[in-house]
Amino acid sequence: MTGTRDEEYLGIREVAASVGLSQDTLRWYEREGLVPRVERDGSRRRRYSPRHVGWLRTLVLLRRTGMPTRDMRRFGRLAADGAATHPERLALLSAHRDRLVARIAALGDDLAALDGKVERYRELIAQGRDCGAPLPDGD
């Protein structure tokens, strides 16, 4: 990584804390090819550049939104190939966004159903009533 001063490099502990991942997860990301090669110092300790940290933050975002590892890997390969891959990256991110919007809508429906159940139990408790007969055992 040319142009980066030694004091700008971070060790794995600092990077893990900075991006909200465990050290083991960072190592796993490296093994899975999600992170560009990380330099090592003379003692073989990892030296993450500011660019690595930025990329890891992107990966954390993608993972938190449910992007599969294979798509994260593909996105990384496309990013490494430069600006010519912008249309492919846009398509990948747009498809993921569409899945995320659908998941949010489904969660909204689930939350509304759960809210209805909570309200029903509050009413039953306030009235001192039972919710109904228990389900049969199936015997």
Rank of each mutant, 00 (worst) to 15 (best):
R37P: 04
E119M: 02
V101W: 06
H86S: 03
E88L: 15
G132L: 03
R97N: 07
D81R: 13
A95Y: 01
A106S: 15
R57D: 15
R73H: 14
D24S: 14
T25G: 01
Y121F: 12
D71S: 12
T69L: 15
L135I: 04
R74S: 11
T25H: 04
D115A: 15
F75G: 04
A113V: 09
R122M: 04
R31M: 13
G3L: 08
H52C: 01
R63V: 03
L10Q: 13
P136R: 10
A112T: 05
S22V: 06
E8D: 08
R103T: 06
V118H: 10
L26P: 12
G138Y: 00
G128R: 01
R129I: 03
G132D: 10
R45K: 10
G66R: 12
D71E: 09
V53P: 00
G3K: 06
L100M: 05
D139I: 08
R13G: 13
R40N: 11
R37L: 12
V38D: 07
E30K: 12
Y48R: 07
R46N: 14
D139L: 15
G33D: 06
Q127T: 05
R27S: 07
T25K: 11
W28S: 03
D6P: 08
T65R: 05
R63G: 03
G116K: 08
L21G: 04
V101A: 11
P87C: 12
F75W: 09
A84I: 11
P87I: 10
M72P: 00
Q23F: 06
Y121R: 10
L10F: 05
S18A: 13
A113T: 07
L21S: 07
C131M: 08
D6S: 14
A83W: 05
E30Q: 13
L111K: 04
S94A: 12
T58R: 15
P68T: 12
E88S: 14
P68S: 10
T4N: 03
A17W: 02
L21E: 14
Y121S: 06
R63T: 03
G66K: 07
A112H: 15
A16W: 01
A16R: 07
Y48Q: 02
V101I: 10
P136I: 02
R129K: 13
G66S: 13
P134S: 08
E14F: 00
G128A: 11
A95D: 13
L124H: 01
E123F: 04
T85V: 02
D41W: 00
A102N: 09
E39Y: 03
R27F: 05
P36T: 06
A95S: 05
T4G: 06
R5H: 15
G54K: 11
P36S: 09
T65A: 13
G132A: 02
V19H: 00
W55A: 01
L78C: 05
R129H: 10
G33I: 01
L107V: 10
R97A: 14
P36K: 07
L56E: 03
E7D: 11
Y48G: 03
Q23A: 06
